[in-house]
Simulated scan of single mutants.
Amino acid sequence: MAEATMTSRERVRAAFAHVQPDHTPCDYFATPEIHQALLSRFGISSEEALLDIIGTDIRVVSPPYIGPPLPRFDDRSTMNIWGIRKRPLPNEYGDYMEPVNFPYAQWTSVEEAEQFPWPDPDWFDYSAVKALCSRYPHHAIVTGSFSVQDFINGVAFGRGVEQTLIDIATEDPVFLYILERRHRFYMEMISRTLEAAEGRIDMVLCGDDFGTQRGLLISPETFDKLFSERKAEFFSMVHAHGARVTHHCCGSSAALFPRFIAIGMDAVQTIQPRAAGMDPFELKRTYGRDIVLHGAVDAQGWLQAVTPQEVEKEVRRLIEEVGQEGGFILSPSHNFQPDTPIENVLAFYRTVAKARGERPGF
């Protein structure tokens, strides 16, 4: 254990350097239902205040959007910069925003795709980034989101899942054109964000879901052919600005870990224990010196079913075993889902505080 107390930023940077921090850093991801329940529980209105209370180490900074107004509709749907209209669709426990317009679905030629009003990186105010970063002098700062790059989901939202999987199998030129549009957009947007931050941003969150519950969604060879080079270029750009990459990837992606490491991925976010081959303890033993594990507390059913005492036991075990010698950022394996008892969410962060020798006030 390190002797001196680290700042949150130092703690996260040590974890990425595979050096033992004073304490395992932790992060927060939640659905709107859980987020609102936590705000109500503490009688607060801001995410920043919530993160301060539960004691997380990472804060998000993004350049403000200043582009054309994004349409909003009477059915509560909204349109994003990619022309995808999403509406909250109910499930048993809450709502998820799902696509409802599929604007790319009918395209059969690159010429049709070229006519679409694609987003412009100029739609963001990079001049505001440095001041936003200055609000968090002691925290690690991340920019980006699950949607950065996100070649498979990002295209499927506009083209449909089935068509996108066919596109990948046939290497359809329309798919490849959209993929490249997304890649070039985020290369420029994130590069300009990092440049504006002048070294103060520590991490970039990006994503793509390459796994199913039982194995890979695509073959390793397809990953190499369609995605690897673009991922490597993006990671190299991030590293050139002194930042690290944490890459969101749902499902069973363990078979791609050697490739992830080879192309410069620093961390995998969404260590989903119930997916095949994704046991965090085994991943730590196999890849712990080469890639950071970001996640690992099972939000896919386990957190919903156990007691707060069981949450504490598992979180302590993860800190003590997976957190050894750095290489680990503790967080839920995905967003805390709407059916998760709030007491279990609080038990998660209460355990973190206790492990740091603090007395949590919740």
Rank of each mutant, 00 (worst) to 15 (best):
E3G: 14
E3D: 15
A4L: 12
A4V: 09
S8A: 15
R11K: 13
R13P: 00
R13F: 00
A15V: 08
F16M: 06
D22M: 06
L39A: 04
F42N: 05
I44N: 03
E48T: 10
A49K: 15
A49W: 02
L50V: 06
G55Y: 05
I58W: 06
G67T: 05
D74N: 13
N80Y: 09
G83Q: 03
I84V: 14
P88L: 10
L89W: 10
P90C: 11
Y93Q: 08
Y93P: 04
D95S: 14
E98H: 14
N101Y: 11
Q106S: 15
Q106R: 15
A113N: 10
E114Y: 00
F116H: 12
W118C: 11
W118R: 12
P119D: 10
D120V: 00
D122H: 10
W123A: 11
Y126L: 02
S127M: 07
A128T: 13
A128V: 12
A128Q: 14
L132T: 02
C133E: 05
S134P: 08
P137C: 12
A140M: 05
V148K: 09
D150A: 14
D150R: 06
D150T: 02
F151N: 07
I152T: 06
G154K: 03
G158L: 01
G158Q: 05
R159W: 04
V161M: 08
E162R: 13
E162C: 02
E162F: 05
L165Y: 05
D167N: 09
T170E: 13
F175G: 02
F175L: 12
F185S: 03
E188Q: 14
A197H: 02
M203P: 04
C206M: 04
D208G: 02
D208F: 03
L217E: 05
I218E: 00
S219F: 10
T222H: 00
F223W: 15
S228V: 00
S228Y: 00
R230C: 00
M237Q: 02
V238Q: 01
H241T: 12
G242I: 04
H247E: 07
H248Y: 00
C249E: 13
C250F: 09
A255R: 13
A255L: 14
F257T: 12
I271V: 15
A275G: 09
G277K: 11
G277D: 04
G277E: 04
M278Q: 10
D279L: 13
P280C: 02
R285W: 02
D290G: 09
I291Y: 01
V292I: 12
L293S: 10
D298Q: 05
W302H: 15
P308Q: 00
P308V: 00
Q309V: 07
K313Y: 04
K313G: 02
E321R: 08
Q324T: 11
E325I: 01
E325L: 07
G327K: 07
I329P: 01
S333C: 14
N335L: 11
F336W: 08
D339M: 12
P341A: 08
I342Q: 01
Y349F: 12
T351C: 09
A353C: 05
